[in-house]
Simulated assay, not measured.
Amino acid sequence: MTTPRPASAASFDAAPLTEPVDPKAVTAFAAELRARGSSGTNGSSIIAIVVIALMAIIVVPVVFTTIVGMVSTPGGSGFAIVPLVIFGAVAVVIAIGSFVGWRRARVTRYRLHRFAQANGMSYEGRVTAPALPGMIFSLGGSRMSTDLVRGTTPRFVEFGNYQYTVKRGKSSTTYRWGYVAVKLDVPLPNIVLDAKGNNGFGSNLPASFQKEQRLSLEGDFDEYFTLYCPEGYERDALYLFSPDIMARFIDNAAELDVEIVDDWMFLYTQRRVSTLDPATWAWLFGAVGALITKLDQWERWRDERLLLENQTAAASASPAASARLANERLPFAPPVGLLSPPPGVAHEGRRLKRSFPWVPVVFMIAFAAFWFWSRSF
């Protein structure tokens, strides 16, 4: 992956996103994806395509033959064939629309593949249930990432579209997100930046967090983001989000929700990230490029609580050994490096504490009350 830069630098090759494609090359790439089990077409889509094809091959000719027979029958009414004509026309439109959509999806995957190649990256059509620790990746069922574009230099970055389905009784809702996953050098506390620029009626995030974990930062950062960090990690958050890093987030990611969890940083949006729109890629490359140039200082962060946590665990595992070590007198001072905790996060900082999402529930109750009230009149 070439190092992303701000969008104004136009440091990537966007030509493969829009240039004409060779149909034979598209077919060959679709066969390659199927061979390695990474096609973006899932089982339900294949069934739908087969059903529509059968409609076009069987149903439409049958309808046409019936219409001809009715018209040629003496005394037949012309009005009787109107429903059949409408049914046949709808079947044809559905079949053509489905074929066009299927072909467009194949071309899109090929163009994204060529775009990734042109920019020193790789393309993957689909990953089922991606093993990522972000908040959106543990919800619902039928989890799937599609159209993944990945780079490994200067650090691993993945651009992808993601969806999951939540079932409520007999109904279900599919939620769609776009995301950018950036691999960090060390694990960090779970920190969430809820962007205010993309919120509607309350936060658009799929999770709510206890208000005691909300941290106000200096300057105008609070005008753009609501920051949540685990209780007791406020000083660590201030170190990680120094004024220069806050400025980068404001200037380049004010419309993106951000989550830091384990050794990952995720940028979330409720629009497609992996797309054929060059302007979207310019925006994302600019945002990622501006942020990752400031992440080196995060590598130096260490969690002092982890050292105490390890000592406590050792003492509980062997109380006698712990007491013996406490009474021993070392003839020399240990090196400073041995007193520093290793990379990692203590238990209390690994995940934010969730809260119950009262706002949607109150809204639903109010709507139901209004509906029953209006029905009573």
Rank of each mutant, 00 (worst) to 15 (best):
A91H: 05
S171R: 10
S8Y: 05
L352T: 01
S274Y: 01
K183W: 09
F249I: 03
L284F: 04
G125H: 03
T2R: 02
S11R: 01
E309F: 07
H113Y: 10
G178N: 04
R36K: 12
V82N: 01
N161C: 12
L148A: 02
G344P: 00
D257R: 00
G197K: 10
Y268H: 09
T66P: 10
S203E: 09
W281G: 00
D296W: 09
A254W: 10
L291K: 03
K170P: 04
V92R: 04
L325V: 02
Q297H: 13
V60S: 06
S138A: 13
K294I: 12
S138K: 12
V336A: 01
D185G: 10
I86F: 13
A320V: 15
G289I: 03
P343D: 02
N199R: 15
G232D: 10
A10P: 01
R302D: 02
T312I: 01
S122A: 09
A7H: 01
G69A: 12
T312N: 01
S274G: 03
R104A: 11
F367E: 03
T128I: 05
L256T: 05
R375Y: 14
K294Y: 12
P243K: 08
D13T: 13
V100G: 14
S45R: 13
I47Y: 10
Y123H: 13
V90C: 15
Y123K: 14
V186L: 02
A89P: 13
E234S: 07
R103K: 09
R176D: 06
A31S: 08
K167V: 07
D194W: 12
Y268W: 11
E299T: 15
F99S: 13
A346F: 01
T128Q: 05
L339N: 06
